[in-house]
């Protein structure tokens, strides 16, 4: 009788151990798999169109198109290929295009990277730079680095730029050189 009791006790112990190991494995997959899972894009999409609306007026504040989109949950980041933005307010229409882009803060900040071209439909001013940040809520566009503006009567180079889309005021810094060659 004692032998039988012993067998059954060790059997239970063994079974319990197996269950514990299985549960442990289930709850904590191998670290490699976990990292792969977390760093994988949550969403992948092609030829996307996204619109943002002004909370107060309900009007479209911007209309964003891109060839390819990948959204990453952990970094709260969305990367774009060939983003094309169009925004309109009482000061007119601006369009921005670049090779790459990033969307952060739930769509409030859009960063355009790599051969960025922005253009004002009203006065024909075009802006070229390598990085341009669009802050939707603040109604601001800024370029932290060097940029070139082409306007109808010439061109302007500067070390950085900040533009308030509501007031229509653009401030250039870190050295500004404008050349007026006459309207073309």
């Amino acid at each position: 009788m004692r032998r039988q009791g012993l067998l059954s006790a060790s059997g239970i112990l063994l079974l319990g151990l197996i269950v514990l190991m299985t549960l442990h494995e289930w709850d904590n997959p191998l670290d490699g798999d976990r990292e792969a899972f977390l760093s994988a894009p949550l969403i992948i999409a092609d030829n996307i169109t996204a619109k943002a609306y002004d909370r107060d007026t309900g009007k479209v504040s911007y209309d964003l198109k891109a060839e390819h989109l990948e959204q990453y949950q952990r970094e709260a980041l969305t990367t774009l290929s060939a983003p094309d933005l169009r925004m309109e307010n009482e000061n007119g229409v601006w369009t921005i295009h670049s090779k790459r882009g990033e969307v952060r803060d739930n769509g409030d900040q859009i960063v355009f990277l790599d051969q960025v071209e922005a253009r004002s439909e009203n006065n024909g001013v075009t802006l070229s730079t390598e990085r341009l940040e669009y802050l939707n809520d603040a109604g601001q566009v800024r370029s932290p680095g060097a940029l070139t503006l082409k306007h109808r009567d010439g061109s302007t180079r500067a070390g950085n730029m900040e533009s308030n889309l509501t007031s229509g005021e653009m401030t250039l810094g870190k050295g500004v050189v404008s050349e007026f060659t006459g309207s073309n």
Partner: peptide
Amino acid sequence: QSVEVSADSATFEQS
């Protein structure tokens, strides 16, 4: 002739 203007900073009023 064309005119060149330079400075430390500049502000443009589009309107």
